[in-house]
C-alpha cells in the first residue's frame, strides 16, 4: 500500500515538474524564433526569470524521491541512462547560468553566447526527457543484475524519438501560451500565432504517439483491466481540444491551464500504464524494476510520507504566492531595473 502511494506521488512529482518547467523549457527553445530584437529577448527572459529556478527544483525532488522511495530503480535507471542524463545535466547547467549571467556584461557577443546556451539548455532537456520517458514506457534492455546492455543510441529508437518530439511540441505550445500571457503587442501576437500554428502538429504527433504506444509498449494492458484509468488519456485529449477552443476565444490563461492539464494527463497516462513497474526491462519482464522489488523499507516510506504530506502543500502554497506576485505582464520598468 505504501509502495503504491509512493508510486502515485512519484508520478505526481514528474507531472508537476513537466507542467511547470515545461513552459520555460518550451519558451527557451522558441526564443530564437519568437524574439525579433533585444527588447523581445529581455521580455522573454523576464517572463521566465522569477519562476524557472523554483520549477527546476521539482526535477530535483522527482529525482530525490526516486532515490529515496525506490533506490534500486534509481540505481538502474540513472546508471542505464548515463549519457542521456549527463547531457541533460550539462544542458540545464548552461541554461541556469545563462539566466543570471546574460545581462551582466554589456556586449553583444556575450549575450549571444548565453542566448545560445539558453536555447540548447531548453531544447535538449525537452527532447531528452521525452526520449527518456518514452523509453521508460517501452522498457530498456537491462539484465537480472540491473546492468544496462545498450548504449546512448539504443535509446534513440523511433518510439523514443517520437516521445522526444511529443515533449518538445507539448512544451513549445505551453511556452508560447505563457509568453502570450506575459507579454504585450507584437511579441504577444507572435506568441499567440505560434501556439496556434504548433497546435495541429502537436495533435498529429500525439495521435501517432498513442498508436505507437499501442504497438511498442505494454501500457495498454492496465487500461484493459481497469477502465477507471481511462480518465487520464481522456483528460489529456479533452484538455488538448479545449486548449484550441480557448485560444480561438483569446482566453490565454485558460489556454495555458488547458495546456498544463494536457501535460499532466499525458504523464499520468504513461505512469498509470506502467504500474506496478517503474522501469520495465525489455530483455525479460522478470527483470523489471517494480514497486515491490525496488521500494525502500516501510519505515523510510512512512517518514517520507509524513514529510511530504506536511511540506508539499506548504511548497505549493508559497510557490503559488510567488506566481501570483509576479503574475503581471512584463513591463518596460521591469527591464530597466536590470541595468544595475
Amino acid at each position: 500500500m505504501l509502495e503504491t502511494i509512493w508510486f502515485v506521488l512519484w508520478g505526481v512529482l514528474w507531472a508537476v515538474y513537466f507542467m511547470l518547467d515545461g513552459f520555460d523549457l518550451g519558451l527557451g527553445a522558441l526564443m530564437p524564433v519568437l524574439a525579433k530584437n533585444e527588447t523581445d529577448k529581455r521580455v522573454i527572459y523576464h517572463a521566465m526569470g522569477p519562476f524557472w529556478d523554483g520549477n527546476e527544483v521539482w526535477l530535483l525532488t522527482a529525482g530525490g524521491v526516486t532515490f529515496a522511495a525506490f533506490p534500486a530503480t534509481y540505481a538502474v535507471m540513472f546508471s542505464s541512462l548515463y549519457s542521456a542524463l549527463m547531457l541533460l545535466l550539462f544542458a540545464l547547467i548552461l541554461r541556469g547560468v545563462a539566466f543570471e549571467f546574460r545581462g551582466k556584461v554589456d556586449n553583444a557577443a556575450w549575450r549571444g553566447l548565453w542566448d545560445a546556451c539558453l536555447w540548447l539548455g531548453s531544447f535538449l532537456p525537452a527532447l531528452l526527457l521525452g526520449v527518456a520517458f518514452a523509453n521508460i514506457f517501452m522498457g530498456i534492455p537491462f539484465d537480472a543484475q540491473g546492468v544496462y546492455q545498450g548504449t546512448l543510441f539504443t535509446l534513440l529508437n523511433p518510439y523514443g524519438l517520437l516521445g522526444g518530439v511529443l515533449f518538445v511540441l507539448l512544451f513549445m505550445v505551453h511556452g508560447s501560451l505563457w509568453l502570450a500571457i506575459k507579454s504585450d503587442g507584437e511579441l504577444a501576437a507572435r506568441a499567440q500565432a505560434m501556439a496556434k500554428r504548433l497546435w495541429p502538429a502537436l495533435v498529429g504527433v500525439a495521435v501517432v504517439f498513442l498508436a505507437a504506444t499501442w504497438v511498442s509498449t505494454r501500457l495498454w494492458a492496465n487500461y484493459m483491466s481497469n477502465l477507471a484509468l481511462w480518465v487520464f488519456p481522456l483528460l489529456a485529449v479533452a484538455a488538448l481540444l479545449y486548449n484550441r477552443l480557448a485560444m480561438a476565444q483569446g482566453a490565454w490563461w485558460k489556454a495555458w491551464f488547458a495546456s498544463a492539464l494536457t501535460i499532466v494527463g499525458c504523464t499520468f497516462f504513461g505512469v498509470a500504464g506502467l504500474y506496478p513497474n517503474l522501469l520495465p526491462s525489455s530483455l525479460d519482464p522478470a527483470f523489471s524494476m517494480t514497486i515491490s522489488n525496488s521500494a525502500s523499507s516501510p519505515l523510510t516510506l512512512k517518514i517520507m510520507l509524513g514529510v511530504a504530506l506536511v511540506m508539499v502543500p506548504v511548497v505549493i502554497a508559497y510557490q503559488a504566492w510567488a506566481y501570483y506576485t509576479f503574475r503581471h505582464k512584463v513591463t518596460e520598468e521591469d527591464l530597466a531595473y536590470e541595468e544595475y
Binding site: G64, F67, A69, P71, A75, S296, T300, M304
Partner: peptide
C-alpha cells in the same frame, strides 16, 4: 538509498 536517498529528498 533507504537512508541516504531519503535525507536528500527531505533536503529538497
Amino acid at each position: 538509498g533507504d537512508i541516504f536517498g531519503s535525507l536528500l529528498a527531505i533536503e529538497a
